[in-house]
Design a protein around this nucleic acid. Structure first.
Lengths: 155, 155
DNA sequence: CCTAGCTAGATGTATAAGACATATATGTGA
DNA sequence: TCACATATATGTCTTATACATCTAGCTAGG
């Protein structure tokens, strides 16, 4: 079968939009919520977690609040994801953990960053700065394209 | 079974790292390549594509190069992903397309942004700016945590 | 003529981060 | 007893992207 030939819609003319089911678009998903990485928050939680742990040790449930606070509400990790992340970081030697002694209520597992973890945080900072640069460039390109000329210049 | 009780490693003491297979960490995957959204490039291609199309229409294979150029090499889309994205954008009415007339070589499908597409680009710009702000806050938190105090302040 | 290689479009599959739902256990207060 | 908050944990889905591969049209070399 012809490659580039079996498209049901859009044959040789512009197609009708054929809307209907509302797919994710930019920051919103079909129902208005922001899901997964679609909102562009990819790889935010790990550095935020390391940053918080670099200041003081803590246990999972509380780290969520600490991260939210430290980032001014910009990073609000999912609890489930945070526990999985902590496990992974521990398996790889970036944090250590132990059950907290005594205290009332459910047991708490307290996490503490290692030297490797601090090194990883430094690595993350450099990476995040690169990302910000890429974002700046992209925003600049998008803004100039949006405000600027249409169709091959026309000032 | 007890929740919080069946962890094979890390029982009441800090665990041994137990390295071995090298998992993705920060910007790198096990083999050093940058895969998926792990590198933090989530939702970069769609706005870049819209920005390029806002300047002039074009066909898929060439849009890859246009995007790379417009973003100073910061966004280099995967061709497969780009074609899928173009299809989705067309289905939702943000771009239209038609086969280019004549010319030698394989047929080209030329894409053109719609008014809805331009509106979406504006939406994207606002969103990217929010993301940059979040990134700034996160970098600030990470930097101060990395350089600053360990364990509950100690100036 | 046949093959290799480039352009162009398209699909298959894997990976990774995160969102949402839910399960389990412990403690407190009505 | 029941509802509720804390605390850890797992299941499953969505999404964006990366990498591999396929088909097809054309061109240049042998």
């Amino acid at each position: 079968m012809g490659a580039a030939e079996d498209r049901s819609a859009a044959d040789t003319q512009g197609t009708g939009p054929a809307q209907g089911h509302r797919r994710r678009r930019c920051c919103e998903s079909g129902d208005g919520t922001r899901r997964g990485v679609g909102a562009g928050r990819g790889a935010f939680v790990e550095p935020a977690l390391l940053a918080v742990l670099a200041r003081s040790e803590g246990y999972g449930y509380d780290l969520v609040r600490a991260i939210e606070e430290a980032t001014g509400g910009e990073v609000v990790p999912d609890t489930g994801g945070l526990y999985r992340l902590l496990r992974r970081l521990e398996e790889d030697g970036f944090v250590t953990s132990q059950w907290q002694e005594g205290g009332s209520g459910p047991q708490r597992r307290s996490y503490c960053i290692t030297d490797d973890g601090r090194a990883l945080l430094e690595h993350w900072i450099g990476h995040l700065e690169e990302r910000r640069h890429a974002l700046d460039v992209l925003i600049g390109a998008a803004r100039s394209a949006s405000q600027g000329t249409r169709e091959t210049d026309a000032t």
